[in-house]
Amino acid sequence: MNPITHIQDYAEELTALRRDIHAHPEIGFEETRTAALVAGLLEGYGYAVHRGIGGTGLVGVLEGRSGEGRRIGLRAELDALPIEEATNLPYRSTVPGKMHACGHDGHTTMLLGAARYLAETRAFDGTAVVIFQPAEEGLGGARAMLRDGLFERFPCDEIYGLHNAPNGPHGRLKVRPGPMMAAADFFDIRITGRGAHAAQPDRGLDPVLVATALAQAMQSIVSRNADPLKAAVVSITQIHAGAAYNVIPESAHLAGTVRTFDAELRSLIARRIRELAEGYAAAYGVEIAVDVRDVFSVLENAGAQAAAAAEIATELFGAEKVDADCKPKMGSEDFADMLHVVPGAYAWLGATPGPGLHNAGYDFDDSLIPLGAAYLARLVERRTARTP
């Protein structure tokens, strides 16, 4: 049976479901409505549902025909982003300041589509474990589920994840063995000087001057300290200071992210940020506090599971629609933490090109729903029967 054909029969229902989730976005660890909706559907399909894992996460378990065989995990994300939506879609966000700007509404729907197909066909031996994770967007949802004993309570032999790629090409699946996505650190740098009248800067210690100088100096880390053959990014994404035209403020705040694939380089960059901050604090007579936090690990696909993902995508979509050795991305994804515990693979599925991820004008391409759902379902059908 071709799962795409089967899932197409209820594709309109899935599209309506995705748009309902899109209209009611919930950010990390607040996904109560979304989790309740997913749990109700899974129970209706016949899954044993376990709620409240890692906060608002949940897991559904379905036995195959014999109940014997391997256990395959499939994971999707529940959370939205704190972004004001800038579309005029009839199903646009109804919640001010929140929207599904990364496609997690679509990922949840694809996994539900796969879950329904598996329940209706039961064309597998072994067990399907569907994992709906909260708080993927930098809040540690995967780690929260792991702390709650995710894989001790629901053992998996393999686990798979899927993400849409709005830069296309449409329907093309990309995967690779080894590093797939970068590690990410977030940093906050707080500079405390001394406020003064803007007409009398000599009476203050200007934190804005220090912040801008430090921001420029930090760009030298990659260009002058990092091995040029190793990929790294240092991006300052926030600068906050002051509230008046004629006041030198007391403090300033820099924030941003570091992306790397190499553990040694990751440590070097964090060390250089602190060293530069210490130097500028001494040079300007201010206080600088630096906080660098490990938020995402390097996402590494296991070789056998990456090959299986490519094989199944080739079967479903055709060889011309599969890139089995794609370039790694500097973006990050906390599915990496699950892959540290269970071998598996993470893949990208190309959408019709449009506004990018984390963009206020983004919308998930609904034509991907049957394709992604079929791919996830076929992974369970094929991999539950395999021996390691």
Rank of each mutant, 00 (worst) to 15 (best):
V38A: 05
E43H: 12
G52Y: 07
R224L: 07
S251K: 12
R92C: 12
L349W: 02
L74S: 05
T352H: 10
K327W: 09
F317Y: 15
H197I: 02
D105I: 01
A123S: 09
G256I: 14
K230I: 08
P207V: 01
Y362N: 10
F132R: 03
M218A: 06
V233D: 00
A244L: 11
E250P: 05
G356F: 02
A282F: 11
R147H: 15
Y160S: 09
G350D: 03
R116T: 15
H163F: 03
T94R: 15
D20P: 01
Y284N: 12
A252G: 02
V59Y: 11
F154Q: 13
S223T: 02
R176W: 10
I239A: 06
G54E: 08
K327T: 13
T32A: 13
D227I: 14
D157C: 04
T32M: 14
R172C: 13
D227T: 13
P201H: 14
V49A: 06
M145I: 01
A281I: 01
L265G: 02
E287S: 14
F29V: 00
T314S: 10
D148A: 04
C102I: 01
E264Q: 04
G318P: 03
A244I: 11
R18H: 01
V380R: 03
Y280E: 00
M99E: 02
G178C: 10
L89D: 06
L89S: 04
E278L: 06
G57V: 01
K321H: 15
T121F: 08
G69T: 00
I369W: 15
R122S: 10
A306G: 06
Q216V: 15
N301T: 03
H22C: 10
H104Q: 06
F151N: 01
A184P: 00
R122K: 08
R382Y: 07
G54C: 10
P249I: 13
A277V: 01
L37N: 06
A282L: 13
G138M: 11
A270R: 10
F335I: 01
M1E: 14
I83F: 02
L42P: 02
H6F: 12
P388H: 13
